[in-house]
Design a protein around this nucleic acid. Structure first.
Length: 558
RNA sequence: AACCUGGUGGUGUAAUGGUAGCACAGCUGAUUUUGGUUCAGCUAGUCGGGGUUCGAGUCCCUGCCGGGUUGCCA
């Protein structure tokens, strides 16, 4: 791209620039703090791009920290998948891999510190009672009857909670702040809750677990995070974040800055809903090519460069936004256009018989792997008497600006020669079953001595020398740009697109036999395709990543 | 409803009191052995109303609209 001139500008970087100018930091340190309870999606890719991008551009440090404070939802499987996705995206945490659970001892000591200072207490209120006592958005809350327990009693109770002497949900440790605060987060928030569930890393060591609020800022402080970047919904937590930093003897003072999360048309970015799609079998798994997960995009053929470029172009802002899907597609095409080899494949075949082509013979033509980059080499494609072309590349009664094949019309077979259609064969229902054509022997190589022009060049595949491919073509998973936009009583499940995947058998040029899983190609005049992991020695499977821009069908569609 | 926060072309994002710019999308045209790519160009915007100022997208007041917040989730 053009990084050298386009310096990213956004309110977070402006803020950092100001601080740097005031000598507030030696080094910028950011972090990405996923909870290991699901797979990463494109929204996370955006968050990673923002935090990692800043650390990188300012020669700082980037930490990956698993925010594992809720053992009921978290699993090691997710830790592994997330690490893979983060590094695939190109965000390198080097040796800065952390877990909030690494800090459980320290966090517990800080809880004791607050109790000793008279700023935390053990509360016996039930969850329901707590809700009542908390008040509402318009009414102040009232103090818990347990709020004035002595530090000694609180210490004793907390130790007993830690030792597993109480049932889950029977007690919590709360900060003593202000039950009348306008910000609900400041109405004596919960610091610790009792959970007997084993933790994926600390096993049975703990019976109490810190809440997000009590863990996050302090973890940032421990790691020396300078800028703790998160999404807008944490804005209301910032006063609490700062309260802990101010009331605890933490080693650093991190700053929380919020920005708007990324929203993209047709895409759902909710782990819970994505999990539902997987669990209910609406998709085949987390890495289904229709999923907006990193693993889904990867399988679909999206590259890390394309995703990062998209996130970069989407920009960082403070307002809610909905990005057009076309930008994502543009970023992918742009990336693939330069990197990927060209091949020919016919997706909707109709047979063409070239009458004057010698029976049983094969002529081999050479095609460049990339039209603009000779260094990418060439490959050979075989021409035989019978070939397949795209059904849509022939019309019996073509409209005015149709450049392709029709009766009496001449087109170029890409890389090979000119053919002219002489007649068609139809079945009883009038469907074209075969196209009869002749070729000009002088046109071998794709041009003629008389230099006559042909308006159209079409792709083709030998009917006898080809490779059969299962092609999986994709549409949007949802029919609405905002999947959650539903009628009363419906859910996003009702907006699922029943035609999000179409599977068909297509024919590719023989060279495609050598394609490896994960390898991407441009099927000329059609789109970008990638080899799916379902491919075996006997069956090739390709996923459509994105179609080529198509100004003809756009025009013809009108 | 209370508090917080935000409103710039169709979409996304810049402009930090001084010519409203960039990208995507859309539309023209040129080039092209992909109706692809590339190149050139066009269309189109400061939520409304007041005020401050020589000058306001930017500052002030007000109205309208959007988003967030009432878990022992993160």
């Amino acid at each position: 791209m053009s990084e050298e001139e386009e310096k990213p500008s956004n309110f977070i970087r402006d803020f950092i620039d100001e601080e740097l100018a005031a000598n507030k930091h030696e080094q910028i340190v950011t972090r990405f703090p996923p909870e290991p309870n699901g797979y990463l999606h494109i929204g996370h890719a955006f968050a990673i791009q923002v935090s990692h991008g800043i650390a990188k551009d300012y020669n700082g440090r980037f930490h990956l920290r698993f925010d594992d404070t809720n053992p009921a939802k978290e699993e090691d499987e997710y830790v592994q998948a997330i690490k893979k996705d983060v590094s695939w995206l190109g965000a390198d945490w080097k040796d800065h891999l952390y877990f909030t659970s690494d800090y459980f001892d320290q966090l517990f000591d800080w809880a004791i510190h607050l109790i000793k200072e008279g700023k935390a207490y053990v509360d016996d209120l039930t969850p329901e009672e707590m809700r009542e006592y908390r008040g509402t958005l318009t009414e102040v809350g009232k103090n818990s009857p347990y709020r004035d327990r002595t530090p000694e009693e609180n210490l004793e109770l907390l130790e007993a909670m830690k030792a597993g002497k109480f049932e889950e949900g029977s007690k919590v440790l709360r900060a003593k702040i202000d039950m009348a605060h306008a910000n609900m987060n400041m109405r004596d928030p919960v610091l610790y809750r009792i959970m007997h569930t084993p933790h994926h890393r600390t096993a049975n060591k703990w019976k109490i677990y810190p809440s997000y609020d009590f863990a996050h800022g302090q973890s940032d402080a421990i790691e020396g995070i300078t800028h703790s970047l998160c999404s807008l919904e944490f804005e209301f937590h910032r006063p609490l974040y700062n309260w802990f930093i101010e009331n605890l003897p933490v080693p650093h003072t991190p700053r929380q800055i919020e920005f708007a999360r990324l929203n993209v048309e047709y895409i759902l970015t909710s782990k819970r809903k994505l999990l539902q799609l997987v669990n209910e079998g609406h998709v085949r798994g987390w890495d289904d090519p229709r999923m907006p997960t990193i693993s889904g995009f990867r399988r679909r053929g999206y590259t890390a460069d394309a995703i990062n470029e998209f996130c970069y172009r989407a920009g960082v802002a403070k307002r809610e936004r909905l990005n057009e899907y076309s930008l994502l597609e543009y970023c992918l095409r742009q990336d693939l256009e330069a990197k990927v080899h060209r091949r020919m494949a016919v997706l909707d075949p109709v047979k063409v018989t070239i009458e004057n082509f010698p029976e049983g013979e094969t002529e081999w033509y050479e095609g460049p792997n990339h039209p603009a980059n000779p260094e990418m080499g060439t490959r050979k494609v075989p021409l035989t008497k019978e070939i397949y072309i795209e059904r849509g590349d022939f019309m019996e009664n073509p409209p005015r600006k149709f450049f392709r094949l029709g009766i009496g019309r001449e087109v170029r077979l890409r890389y090979a020669c000119y053919i002219t259609c002489t007649s068609v064969v139809k079945d009883d229902e009038g469907n074209i079953t075969e196209i009869i054509a002749t070729f000009d022997p002088e046109s071998r190589g794709g041009s003629t001595p008389d230099n006559r022009k042909v308006k159209g060049t079409i792709h083709w595949v030998s009917a006898s020398e080809n490779v059969e491919i299962e092609a999986r073509n994709y549409g949007q998973l949802f029919t609405k740009t905002v999947p959650d936009d539903v009628e009363e009583g419906q859910t996003y499940i009702d907006n699922l697109n029943p035609n999000s995947e179409t599977v068909s058998t297509i024919y590719g040029e023989p060279e495609l036999k050598n394609a490896k899983i994960g390898e991407a190609f441009q099927f000329e005049r059609k789109g970008y395709y990638v080899v799916d992991p379902d491919t075996t020695d006997t069956k090739m499977v390709f996923n459509e990543s994105v179609g080529l821009r198509d100004s003809w069908s756009k025009k013809a569609g009108k």
